[in-house]
Design a binder for these strands. Sequence first.
DNA 1: AACTGGTCCAACCGCGACCAA
DNA 2: GTTGGTCGCGGTTGGACCAGT
Length: 212
Amino acid sequence: MRKPCCDKEGTNKGAWSQQEDQKLIDYIKIHGEGCWHSLPKAAGLERCGKSCRLRWINYLRPDIKRGNFAQDEEDLIIKLHALLGNRWSLIAGRLPGRTDNEVKNYWNSHIRKKLMRMGIDPDNHKLHQHRPCVRTPQQTPISFTANSSESKKNNVMSSKHLPSSKSHGKNHANDQDATSENTALSFIKEETSQILNLNLELRIAMPLDPGK
DNA sequence: AACTGGTCCAACCGCGACCAA
DNA sequence: GTTGGTCGCGGTTGGACCAGT
């Protein structure tokens, strides 16, 4: 039933060349984002629309912030993950210039290991019962420290970091998501002030999503 | 220098949601 | 209500790179 979008003959896969990048950039500069399905043909690219969208969003967009994550960003990711789970797009929406893919990769390659080293289950953010939290003096207690809390709270609540409303109006489908997200974020405000010095024992459970 | 194993990240894939016909 | 087209998300993979031997 479902027709694979990228199985056409003559459709490139794999790494993007500079020429392809330039074509995509030039096209979007003129015509803007959207209509990904028809974009490749119009832009003279032998790629599927999905691939173009991904390349643009994750790599070519001018507002992409590249390079290492700051400590504040890492802190925020951990907090938001504790509240939202693997909702990478929502988490990335709170991190200006970061993409969901980047956040997801950073989580899997850095933060997950860091939490595990500290005896914290990265899936539920609870301390492992039988694993003492071993920490060297240099290691911060994952940054739920009072020091950076203010900036982080401001960051979280700043409306300019909300996901862009231009995203095709499909996100209104996520009204429930948005509601739960807002609920979660309001929790951040209240809860963080209470738990900042209590290690990472976050207990805020997201509503189970039966669809996933 | 050559090999090997681990890490990281860009890109792909599958699926669900939405919308129009 | 159903179907087909499209978009967006999250999980997974492939390969480049690096450190250790």
